[in-house]
Design a protein around this nucleic acid. Structure first.
Lengths: 168, 168
DNA sequence: CTGAATTTTCAAATAATATTGAAAGCAGGA
DNA sequence: TCCTGCTTTCAATATTATTTGAAAATTCAG
């Protein structure tokens, strides 16, 4: 397969992969494009490569920066802004985990805490099942939370070396 | 908070939580409803509680069964089918992990294998960065894959007891 | 300060996705 | 077999999410 085809295929797949995980297609595609680009790219470069509008690129780049996956950079002599992606996949993954945990898991667990305090007769099977479900989610969520914290803080080398050996 | 309010809140939140993870709102809501229901529910029960159409309930229930999160059951004397959700959150989570791994991670890694074999001069920085990115994703993906396999096979008690202690 | 280059915003248009509901399908009882 | 109650399908419709593009804002060199 030629590089140009492989690039297209990768960008396309990373895009659909993203949509299955609640990330919009263009954002994932821009990320893919920057991941495989050895040099910084401008908004115009991205617009051209992906055939999307300036506004779209602008918004999604901002989002990527917000997530900590992309950063602005400048090229001496150029007026435009350029962008570059974090290339270390381990860092990419831990960044995403950290952000999603903060944005979604943490608030969810907070809510479960409130809901587990529902009033009502704990002998009533409706009430009982509800509380049990909330507690189950809380328990699991807190475990996941702790585990992800450790994972995110761990160095890749430590993680791979020690944990993998431990695991089998 | 009253049980009725808490239920609504939970169903609603589980629904939006789902949409952030590539799961459709109604499917997540049906799952939520069944999770907190101590008794099996029929399609009609679900339609009524969530105010959605029969077709919608039917399709999403099928999907949930497909995922292994819900199963059909019957109530003696009743002609209708009833449905019940797996209540053990640990099992729910490992089922979801297993399925998503199979449906998304595994195919992605297979693709990366193909793409990493791109033809072209490995001295060329475009080719080099592309291959490095593919390899990075593969390496990470394979680790995640192995780790998730262990996780999915592990018993909750073992996992919590041993791994958590290890993790500190 | 001026104006050209660049970036940002956001209402409107478009595209993608989910939902409805009526018709078709199916299973069991009489 | 035919009827009845229930389930499934799917084209039409509605909803939600994404994208566009032109105007406004910003930046910066001269």
């Amino acid at each position: 397969m030629k590089l140009s085809d492989a690039k297209l295929k990768f960008i396309d797949s990373w895009g659909s992969f993203g949509t299955h995980w609640g990330i919009n297609r263009t954002m994932a595609q821009i990320h893919a494009l920057l991941l495989i680009s050895p040099d910084p790219m401008s908004q115009d470069d991205i617009m051209e490569q992906l055939s999307v509008s300036r506004g779209n690129v602008n918004m999604n780049i901002r989002e990527l920066i917000d997530w900590g996956l992309v950063e602005r950079t400048s090229i001496p002599g150029e007026r435009k802004e350029f962008f570059i992606a974090e290339k270390d996949i381990w860092k990419v993954a831990t960044t995403i985990i950290k952000e999603r945990k903060r944005r979604e898991l943490d608030p969810m667990l907070k809510l479960m805490d409130q809901l587990a305090a529902v009033e009502g007769d704990k002998k009533d099977k409706e009430v009982k099942q509800f509380i049990e479900t909330m507690n189950g989610i809380k328990r699991f969520g807190n475990q996941a939370d702790k585990m992800l914290d450790v994972l995110v803080k761990a160095e890749e080398s430590w993680f791979v070396g020690t944990l993998m050996k431990f695991f089998k």
